[in-house]
Amino acid sequence: MGLLHTVNKSPFESNTFDTCLGYALDGSTVLLIEDGVYAATIGTRASEKIQQKIQSNNDVSFAVLGPDLQARGLENKLADGIKVVDYEGFVNLVAEHDSVQSWL
């Protein structure tokens, strides 16, 4: 089952998130961690792009690392369509996908 992509950069600081979207093929999951979680919050261009991607291709999934969202005080700003996972969920995603590309 496809690649797991992790993004750990704020979409406001770098274009890593946009680049990653271009690599997210069918069967892949994009997991937002660390400063990457800002892309998962409502009212941002990045989360709009996530919505567009989900609408155009429902074989790509999005997830966010809950502990990172909580740490940043944004748990109640989560946009629709993005699954929240804890570290155990992160481990499961790694196990479920064929390999992992970390967009450092």
């Binding site: 690392l65 570290y87 992160f90 481990v91 499961n92 790694v94």
Partner: peptide, 19 residues
């Protein structure tokens, strides 16, 4: 940077899950 912290939490969770 948070990288080492995240890796540590990941490692703990992986071990706890029996990996």
């Amino acid at each position: 940077h948070q990288a080492s912290d995240t890796a540590y939490q990941f490692a703990k969770a992986a071990l706890a899950a029996g990996h």
